[in-house]
């Protein structure tokens, strides 16, 4: 890992300029927990590292005027967990981000890095997909908003063009749950690993749902990780939940839809059959946790 230049710009505009000038030879450095490991293993040797942790928009969390959240792309997992309002509104996203690596890694690893590394097994991505999160991408032509599920295009590949970077993630507003008779929402993320931590998901499942005052699911989204070349949004699994109270039949149907949507490979971490089966199991289980968090009869 020799010979890399290093810049730490203070603005998104400077960053875009540096990225453009490097013409593909630069890499954005947030926590560096994937990038530095890849450099050490000789998988990549960028001419320039652009550290984005000093850019205020990338390093902050805010509640937006509509009641949603804006999370800077370089905010680390530990900081997500310390934001009480975010934890209350989106526990599934926070728990997904918190599963990445060790305590030390948690002080560095970011949602932006987890997404842009392009791994199909990235833990935070299925949770963000389930949440309906979008990301703001800045580039030479200005900024654009892209749904999280559309960012990763293949293992290690994203839709970002040369000169572009992810600035932040936007989460939609949630019913706050303060009125027991009003709509409520909950989300959850589960992953299967053979150990208890320090591992990479064999399967990951994120579920987010909204219940009306009667406890009927009015909106749901399901994201799956590590079961295809990219993280998946599984609308059929969500559809199986919408209009139900998440009774056993609905959960089973959602699980089956998730298993059916999974298109995994056999590799050193798991088999096709196992991943398809467990995608269904985790979808059901995550849906039940999300239901409980939304105050439903889980």
């Amino acid at each position: 890992m020799n010979g890399s230049g290093y810049e730490a710009p203070r603005t998104v505009e400077e960053t875009v300029t540096l990225l453009q000038q490097a013409n593909g030879a630069a890499r954005v450095l947030a926590g560096g927990t994937d990038l530095l490991a890849q450099m050490k293993m000789g998988m990549t040797s960028p001419a320039l590292l652009i550290d984005v942790k000093k850019i205020p928009e990338l390093a902050s969390i805010e509640q937006t005027a509509d009641g949603g959240f804006r999370i800077g792309a370089a905010v680390c997992g530990a900081a997500l967990a310390e934001h009480a309002a975010l934890v209350a509104a989106w526990p599934g996203i926070v728990e997904a981000a918190r599963l990445i690596g060790s305590e030390q890694i948690q002080g560095r690893a970011s949602l932006g890095g987890n997404l842009c590394n392009g791994s199909p097994a990235a833990d935070s991505v299925p949770a963000l997909i389930a949440a309906g999160a979008t990301c703001t991408i800045a580039g030479p032509g200005g900024t654009r908003s892209v749904a999280v599920e559309d960012v990763i295009t293949a293992p290690g590949k994203t839709c970002l063009a040369t000169g572009e970077l992810v600035v932040d993630f936007r989460l939609p507003p949630r019913p706050d749950g303060s009125d027991a008779r009003a709509a409520k929402a909950g989300d959850a993320y589960l992953r299967m690993i053979p150990r208890s931590e320090m591992d990479i998901a064999i399967v990951g499942a994120g579920v987010s749902l909204t219940l009306d005052e009667a406890g009927v699911c009015t909106a749901a989204r399901v994201g799956l990780g590590a079961v295809a070349a990219t993280p998946l949004r599984v609308d059929a699994a969500a559809a199986a939940l919408i209009g139900t109270t998440l009774d056993d039949a609905a959960l089973a149907a959602a699980g089956e839809a998730a298993s059916a949507a999974a298109r995994p490979i056999d590799d050193k971490r798991g088999t096709i059959a196992y991943r398809k089966q467990v995608a269904g199991v985790l979808t059901r289980r995550a849906a039940k946790i999300a239901l409980a968090r939304a105050g439903g009869n889980g």
Binding site: P194, R195, S196, E197, M198, D199, I200, K268, R269
Partner: peptide, 15 residues
């Protein structure tokens, strides 16, 4: 295929 502690899975303390 797994010459490292990520995929050569020894137990960690919490296991």
């Amino acid at each position: 295929e797994n010459p490292g502690f990520l995929d050569y899975r020894m137990p960690v303390a919490s296991d």
